[in-house]
Amino acid sequence: MSELLNNDLNSTDLARENAALISPELADTVTLTSIDKAINMLSQIVSPIANLARSNSVWPLTFGTSCCAIEMMCVGMSAFDISRFGSEVFRATPRQADLIITAGTITRKMASALITLYEQLPEPKYVIAMGACTITGGMFNDSYSVVQGVDRIIPVDVYLPGCPPRPEAILDALLKLQQKIRTENYAKRRVQAYQQRPVCYVDYDCGRPLEDLLAMAMEDTSLALDQK
C-alpha cells in the first residue's frame, strides 16, 4: 500500500523539494507531507511577520547554575535593563520560554536535567551558551564531573565568552540571537526541528526507569493476588 502511494506521488519532485528543505543529517528521518509544502509556500508571507514578533519577544527560562547567573540577574536590573529588548519576562516553566541562557557550569548530573528542559521547550527554541564553562568547560577543563561544553548535549545558537561575561555582553548575545531569528524561514525551522526523544522518568535511588518499576509493582501485586 505504501509503495502504491509513493508511486502516485511524483517522487522526483518530492526528492528535489526535500533536498531543498531538509538538512542532510535529517534526510532519512524527515519526510515532507503536502501540509509541509503548503506551509513552505505560506512561509514566504508568514516568516517575516513571525520572525519580527519572535525576535522581539524572546522570553528566557529562569535557569542559572553558577556565577554567570548573577550577571544574568544583573542584566534584568536598572543599570543594564534587558527589558528594553522585550526579554525581561523570565518564565519559570520551560513551556512558556523561548530561550535558555545556560548561565553557569553544567555538571554531568545537571546535564540530564538540562536536556529535559531543552526538550520541554516548545519550538522555536534557542540556546545561548553563556560563559567559559558552558562553551568549553572553561576552568574545569578535564574535570571528572563537568560537561566540557554545553554544545555536546544541546544545540547552541550563540556562544557568549567570558568568565563570567559582562551584562553588556549578554545584551550583545541577545541582539545577535535576534539577528539570527530574523533570518530564519518558518518552514525550514519546522523541518529542521531537533529530533526529540521522549522524556524518560528515572527513579533517582535505584536508577531504573519508572515504567519498569511500575511494571514490576504491577507484577508483584498480581502475583500476590494469585497466591490469595
Partner: peptide, 8 residues
C-alpha cells in the same frame, strides 16, 4: 576518568 561524548 571516564571518557565519553561529554568530555572527549
Amino acid at each position: 576518568q571516564l571518557v565519553d561524548a561529554l568530555n572527549d
